[in-house]
Design a protein around this nucleic acid. Structure first.
Lengths: 199, 199
DNA sequence: CCTGCTATTGAACACTCGTTCAACATGCAT
DNA sequence: ATGCATGTTGAACGAGTGTTCAATAGCAGG
């Protein structure tokens, strides 16, 4: 078992290096750039090993999808050391953060969306993740604005997500950063907006 | 020449049927679903004819890109029978129109964006079209709000486009229509918003 | 040492891909 | 009638694809 840990460590290393390679290739060259051979080459392993860890090419892509979806969910995961207001605000500002607005991540998201559009199976995974994301956002809003009903929170979350998606997409097309900043401000206005009843 | 017109007509028919088939396949199955053979099958012509009208697969995709870009530009083309205010308003509302929010068109746009992200050549075409679109939108704003400087109009156009892109993308993911309507309203608020100076 | 298990390799298979090309069809000009 | 340009076909080629699989390596437990 002592060496098993090492083994398991290396095993995970190889497997995750394969997944990482797939993500890299997908973001750089799109789905047509992701072949079992190119993934193996990029990961520095033999062709057979890719099929050893991932039965199908489909399984590999699914794993990539799940990886990115988990990453997205982290964006609306609250920092327990902050007030609800701060939690919501930082979550909203994270989407313009340097680590998120990298071409690699945005490109990855775009290719996965396109992929989901072409394949039913991927679409379901994507839709589920999208729903959880809105739920997470709505929860943050609910904590920051306790007067709102859950439906109202979901509504605000939906509106915010529209703009966020627009920011992500438009960043790839190279719109100026100032517009992104104004859009961020807009999401905050929506999320923090005055409660319809509370005075 | 008399029959040449007929000939040219049929020629265009075949050629545009090929392009149409490519657009169809691209929107339904993504770039991996677009092969010269599948395009030929979908268009009901022989394989060789696709390469006869389009030297490359790249040329075919480029043609598809241009087709969609032209279509996009029409969205911000003013109707000469309306007042500037109406022109801007209808343009803004067009993006939620039934013909535009079809899955086919949105999916097509998405796949083309993804394609542009993976290929330098497509990216340039896309970026140019994007710029012309913003220009068209800014022009509409300038006509409706003569007090604004050109830079201010471009700024508003950029902000509007962020939300529009978000609406397009989010429509594919199946967000509720109500959120789209609120987003449309938001673009109108931005475009028609009070001039910073004018009283 | 041997057995058994997991990790890893690369050759091999059947297939699809983009592109090329010789062949044929059609209709106009000479 | 003959020649020529244009349109159209499908076979063929080489390269690349996903998947399978026998073979090997390394190491744990007997």
């Amino acid at each position: 078992m002592g060496t098993n840990t090492v083994n398991s460590g290396e095993q995970l290393d190889r497997q995750s290096r394969i997944l990482e390679a797939a993500l890299d290739l997908l973001s750089r060259h799109g789905i047509s750039g992701v072949s079992m051979r190119s993934v193996a080459r990029e990961a520095g392993v033999a062709l057979g090993l890719v099929n050893y860890y991932y039965d199908d090419k489909t399984s590999l892509i699914r794993a990539a999808l799940h990886r990115v979806d988990e990453h997205d969910l982290l964006l609306v995961t609250p920092d327990p050391d902050s007030t609800p207001d701060e939690q919501l605000r930082t979550a909203l500002r994270r989407v313009a953060g340097a680590d998120l607005l990298t071409t690699k991540y945005l490109s990855l998201r775009l290719h996965l969306w396109a992929l989901a559009q072409a394949d039913e199976g991927y679409a379901e995974i994507n839709a589920a993740a999208f729903d959880r994301y809105i739920d997470g956002l709505a929860t943050l809003v609910a904590n920051a604005r306790p007067g709102l009903t859950w439906a109202e929170c979901r509504e605000r979350a939906s509106d915010v997500v529209v703009i966020q998606n627009g920011m992500w997409l438009t960043s790839l097309l190279g719109v100026d950063k100032a517009s992104i900043q104004r859009s961020i401000q807009r999401t905050e206005d929506i999320a923090f907006g005055p409660a319809p009843d509370a005075g």
